[in-house]
Each structure stands twice: as C-alpha cells, then as structure tokens.
Amino acid sequence: MAALEFTDAVVRYGAATILGGATLSVETGAFVSIVGPTGCGKSTLLNLAAGLLAPSAGSVRSLGVEVSGVNRKAGYLFQGDSLMPWRNARDNVAAGPQFAGVPLGEARRQADVWLERVGLHGAGNKYPHQLSGGMRKRAQLAQTLVMDPPILLMDEPFSALDVQTRLMMENELLALWAGSGGPRKTVLFITHDLEEAISLSDRVVVLSAGPSTRPIAAFDIDLPRPRDVAEIRHTHAFQEAHARIWDVLRDEVLKTYRRNVAA
C-alpha cells in the first residue's frame, strides 16, 4: 500500500492553476525527493499530503485513507521557523505529546530523549531565538520525530543553513531514518538542490515548470546505503544519475527562468 497516493490532484487559486493534475505514488518506507524550478508549486504538493490544503479536483490518499483535514499520519518539517517562540526547546518538542493528552512531565521526558538524539543535549531550556539556525532545525526535527509519524514531509528543511551544517544535518537525517528501529518512515523531501535530492533519496521526481505543475519524470537512485552525502557526490554512479536527471530538469528551469526574465 502506498504511503501517499496523488491521483490527478489539481490545485487552483482563483483563476490560476498551481498544480495541474499531479499523479504520484510514494511507496511505504521509501525516501522520495521532489525537485523542480523555483516557485513551481513543490510546497503545494506537500501541503496536499499534509492535509493543510484540499485539492480542487482529484484525490490524495495516505496509507489507504482519503486525506481530509490535517493528516495525522504525517509529520511536517517546514522550511521556515515553526517553533513556538514563547516555548523553550524542551517544551516545543513536548508540544505534540502534550496536545495528544500526555501529562506534561512525561511529555518533557520524551522531549529530552529526542533532544539528545538530535544533538541538542543541554539546550532544552533555551528559547528559539537563543539557538542558531542549525540548532533550531534540529529542534524542529525532534519536535516532529517525537510524534513517531509513519510519514515525514520535508519542505526544503535545510535550505537556510550553511553548507557544512547542511551536509551534517543530511547525514544525521539519513542515520535517524535508517536507524529508528521500527519500520522505516516514508519520506517525501522537497528541494531545489538536485545534489541533495540524489544523495538522500531512493527516487527523485522532477516537476515541470509552473503554472499547472505536474510530475514529468521519476528516476530510481541505486546508490548503496548507508551513504555519506558529502562523499557520495564524487562517485561515478552519482554523477551519472545527476547528468540524466539534469537533462530533464534543465529545460524546466530554463522555462521558469525565461518567464521570470520576461515578466
């Protein structure tokens, strides 16, 4: 059963068609990345999966159930800061269990376990504004993972980080994903960085230039795991995959570029 199944999903805002009939299936336990030109509607696809947005036409199913309202089986790692600024790191991570009715003491204990796992040991009492960008991302990751969602939706989560921090976070994400003990989580990862997509994923899906975006090609990535995202970029297989996908992606990027220049 597919973790996520988009069938002819259309999203319109007034007269504009953002997503034009997207059909995509993400199998359970897979790490799938979506790449596409800037502003083509990648986040829209993710918001459909999250249930934050309802399709204007078509359907979105998650683990066999039609998504309507917030998708309780999915955790969402946002591009921006989603931490509550008035809660310290521990209480931010404890928020999910707390909303689910877990007593605060127990929720905080779970939070501490996850803060430790994402490398934020000892930072529990700090408020988001006292944390660096990388630390805030780690806190967000802990906040999402403490809920143990079978599906992880990630919207360019590391795009605001510097290159070194980013590589480290990518490796840690892969380690958390592979080593969580239970069944592997399904990851739908959005990025505009093709290298990031290839080094993390089992499959890379290319979206067409907007408006009326839809998936136009999918590539399986047969690189061995466990991977080191920094080193794998130098392998022949990686570069071959990069060349194949870029061949498709380039045209879409150029279309967007020309349209933006003309506008």
């Binding site: 999250a50 934050l52 917030v70 989603s82 600024p85």
Partner: peptide
C-alpha cells in the same frame, strides 16, 4: 508557519 506547525502536531 508556527500555526501550521502546531496544527501538524495535532493541536
């Protein structure tokens, strides 16, 4: 973002 994040956490 905070609002959507909190909703995704099940609030």
């Amino acid at each position: 973002v905070v609002l959507n994040g909190t909703r995704m956490l099940g609030a």
